[in-house]
Design a protein around this nucleic acid. Structure first.
Lengths: 142, 142
DNA sequence: TTAAATGCAAATCTTTTGCACTGGC
DNA sequence: GCCAGTGCAAAAGATTTGCATTTAA
């Protein structure tokens, strides 16, 4: 998903929702602004986004953060990444790319993917197709 | 982890625990037999292993299944795989290999890895080393 | 004998849900 | 005004933990 090129955080958030026809409610706009307001991609957990939202003008409940993240994923604006059994991560960059997972801090970051290639990927069994290929590189601090 | 070559399920289970110096308690032996008794690799969840254990002579509580799976992982006998935010899978094959995850059934299976290769894997940042690379191929039934 | 392992139930943590209320369109 | 979206609190799962009891070495 390419982020909107608009010049202000508010405009970018509005466009981001509009491109998928999502109703721009106050809460969604507030969360969108935290997610893509600066035009950069971001990885969040429901909890981290909720905490970030505490600092802004709009009140957003934790349940709404969960519901909203799910709505964004279903709309194709974000991608859910599973790396840690007890937490879900959400990425505003929906193109397929590998991630670094820092085992000590639980942080998830992008691994530059420019030249990575998987050769001889196992092919899908007859009655199935590949939905996606997730690559997670687990890092241990030295 | 190479599975013991012993000829009987009990002997295999005993050897499997012994190679890592784990105390062969009744429960551990019962679970080990379910896991490696037939000399084949297996993917389980705590719940699925618990259910399987209901059918055998030894009583094993769910908490013990969890604790035991964790002990096996820490000893290096098994590997934990995270593919689905709300459940952990455990694999008796501890060598690094890709997995198929069936999105509809939640089943996890091995993808034959013989020829798969990742080229230009992003290198670890300066202060970290790669602990492992997880590859999960998500399948959608057609 | 003695430290490790177990069982149970309660606690914890993440995520979802039911339902009444609010607010875009 | 209508219906999607929201807030809250309660529910639902998965996993862990505390503690008394059991057991392998």
């Amino acid at each position: 998903m390419t982020l909107p090129q608009a010049s202000t955080p508010k405009a970018r958030s509005t466009q981001w929702l509009a491109q998928k026809g999502l109703r721009p409610t106050r809460q969604r706009l507030a969360l969108a602004e935290l997610l893509v307001g600066d035009g950069k991609h971001r990885h969040v957990t429901a909890e981290s986004l909720f905490e970030a939202s505490q600092g802004c003008a709009e009140t957003v409940s934790l349940a709404t953060v969960y519901n909203t993240l799910r709505a964004f994923c279903e709309a194709g604006l974000m991608h859910e990444i599973t790396v840690d059994g007890n937490k879900s991560y959400f990425d505003t960059n929906t193109s397929e790319h590998p991630h670094f997972f820092w085992e000590d801090s639980g942080e998830l970051t992008d691994a530059s993917t420019e030249r990575m290639e998987i050769t001889n990927l196992p092919s899908a069994p007859a009655d199935a197709e590949i939905a996606s290929v997730d690559v997670v590189i687990r890092l241990r601090r030295t």
